[in-house]
Simulated assay, not measured.
Amino acid sequence: MNNHEIDYKIYGDDMQFVEIELDPEETTIAEAGSLMMMEDGVSMETIFGDGSGQKGFMGKLFGAGKRLLTGESLFMTAFTNSASGKKHVSFAAPYPGKIIPLDLSLNGGEIICQKDAFLCAAKGVTVGIEFQRKLGTGFFGGEGFIMEKLEGDGMAFIHAGGTMKEVTLSEGEMLRVDTGCLVGMTRGVSYEIEFVKGIKTALFGGEGLFFATLRGPGTVWVQSLPFSRLASRVFSAMPQNPIGRSQGEGSVLGGVFDIFDGD
């Protein structure tokens, strides 16, 4: 294997974190800000790009530039076991959902996933970009022209919002998915955007104007709660009070405050 071979354990249900066990001199890479805790003996180093072993400055610059296009930082963090025994380092999910462990060697060495889905991986995994070649997919696909591409033969971990469903598609089998609910797919899956039929359904159905049409063969990972949907609900529930004072929403006090405010 070209990637470091790591062991792991996932804890929790809705707010999960993954604990990675490192043998001496083993390394895992992660997005900045995802660290939860690490044991004594694990050294932390900020690296340029994804640390997948690009040769020369230009190779590292190109790798970092690809990450910048996906909205990620130019830098990642490498965690190495510098001690003589096994050590552990843990990474937490950014919002409620599931952490999906992916063995790239069992998935054709490549996974295409939505932006911001990547959490951490064994050192050697390349975190690159995947351009959507069709204009319709790029404009209306929910993820834009660019998605993340994970390549290698080791373990990688991505995050999905809410509950995750893994669907295996056979040759020619089709699945329609809300564009925001698509988390990832293997290379063999074709991805297109289809317009919702019927003007009443498109305008008043509440599901948007487009959905993703996925065709096998391959594996697809679907999430029940995209972060954009969660953020929209949170924003709509925020009190429209310029002072920022809580008025006891959902209680009798809320109505009392409304009377005094003249509402």
Rank of each mutant, 00 (worst) to 15 (best):
P96K: 07
I47L: 03
I112C: 11
L209R: 08
K197D: 09
F75D: 05
L61Y: 11
E21C: 15
D23W: 08
I20W: 05
P94C: 08
M37F: 13
G136T: 00
M147C: 15
S105D: 07
L230T: 14
L69K: 14
V256Y: 14
F62C: 14
K86H: 08
F118S: 11
A93D: 04
M155C: 01
R233N: 13
Q132M: 14
K86G: 08
G108V: 00
G208E: 05
S228R: 14
Y8G: 06
S84H: 04
E25I: 09
P94Y: 09
L175K: 10
G141H: 00
F211R: 09
L119V: 14
M1G: 14
N81D: 05
Q223M: 13
V125K: 10
T77W: 07
K66L: 15
V234C: 04
G63T: 02
H159T: 02
K197R: 13
L68H: 12
G12K: 02
K200G: 10
S251G: 04
E151R: 15
A78V: 06
L175R: 10
V256L: 14
G49W: 05
K9W: 00
G262N: 03
G53H: 06
E194F: 06
E130Q: 07
L22G: 00
G138A: 13
I112A: 11
E173V: 02
A78L: 09
T219V: 07
V167H: 08
G262W: 01
K55E: 10
Q247P: 07
G154D: 03
T70Y: 06
V18W: 01
F79Q: 03
S90C: 05
R233F: 12
R133T: 12
T186Y: 07
V256C: 08
E110D: 15
Y191H: 15
A64L: 04
S236N: 07
L22P: 09
L104A: 00
E72W: 00
E25P: 09
E173S: 07
H4M: 12
G172H: 08
F235W: 07
S190I: 11
G144C: 06
R233V: 09
L61M: 15
Q114E: 07
N3H: 11
V42H: 08
G109Y: 07
G161Q: 01
L150G: 06
M155R: 02
S251A: 09
L225C: 02
L203M: 08
L135N: 12
T80Q: 01
T137S: 01
G144V: 01
A160Q: 01
E25N: 12
E110S: 08
G128L: 02
G97H: 00
I99S: 06
V89W: 07
Q240T: 09
C120N: 04
A212F: 00
V196T: 10
M44L: 12
M76A: 03
G206S: 12
L104Y: 00
A231F: 15
E148W: 07
A237E: 11
K200I: 10
G49P: 00
T70I: 14
D261M: 13
I100K: 09
Y95D: 06
M37L: 14
M38D: 04
E192V: 13
K149S: 12
V196D: 01
V89R: 02
H4E: 06
G33P: 05
